[in-house]
Amino acid sequence: MNHIPPRPTATREMILECCKPIAEKLEADAETLAQHYRRHMDGFDLCIELAKWAGWDMQRDDIDTLDELGHLVDEAERDAVKTWFEEHNPQPPFAIGDNIKQGLITGISSYSLACFEVKVAGHPDTSRLIVKFEDAKAA
């Protein structure tokens, strides 16, 4: 996997692009919105940040609109990872059935690209940890 570029993550540019439709709905500035947004921040927390640090006068309905931002950023990141996956075709560094530091590899994730499904000792049989190929470490 050393020859494969790192898995993409949401960049400031991607976040700014995702902020534009939200800012348009709120009749606000996308750059200010992007400046105060942090990954996995919900609409309520973002509303508090914008009111406190940017002086925005927010209403209850604005929280729902701001909640959309996290979903848009996640979707943009998933699209970037999908492109990365298609371009570089990363191969799993371990096989199904191998033990890694995180647990026993029971499969390849069908939802998260280039990720293992890992059974963690002591957790219910129905529970699986999703571990990126690059984060899997030999036991």
Rank of each mutant, 00 (worst) to 15 (best):
I96R: 12
K137V: 14
H123V: 13
P92N: 05
D42M: 03
G70Q: 09
T32Q: 10
T106V: 13
E86P: 03
M1K: 08
C115H: 06
E24F: 12
E75G: 03
R60L: 01
K52D: 13
L46Y: 02
H88I: 05
I130W: 14
I4H: 08
A54Y: 03
A23C: 06
K137R: 14
T11E: 04
S127Y: 12
F133K: 05
D135K: 10
E117C: 14
I63Y: 02
F116T: 05
M1T: 02
E117R: 14
G122Y: 08
E75A: 03
I100V: 15
H123E: 15
A54G: 02
A30T: 04
W56H: 10
R7C: 01
M1D: 08
I63A: 04
G97W: 11
E68V: 01
A136Y: 00
L66W: 10
K20M: 11
L26P: 06
T106H: 04
V81S: 00
H3A: 06
E68D: 14
N99F: 15
F133G: 07
T32W: 07
M14A: 09
A114C: 08
Q102S: 11
A28K: 03
P6C: 10
T9G: 11
A51K: 03
H40A: 06
E24N: 13
A10N: 03
S112A: 14
T126I: 14
P93N: 00
I100L: 10
A114H: 00
L26G: 09
H36M: 11
E117S: 14
F94A: 08
G55I: 06
Q59C: 06
H71Q: 13
M14V: 03
G107H: 12
D67V: 02
C47K: 08
R60W: 00
E13V: 02
T65W: 06
M41H: 01
A51R: 10
I63F: 05
W53A: 12
H71L: 09
D45G: 12
P5W: 03
A30R: 06
K20G: 05
D57L: 15
H36Q: 02
K101H: 14
H123K: 15
I100R: 07
G70K: 07
M14S: 10
T83Y: 02
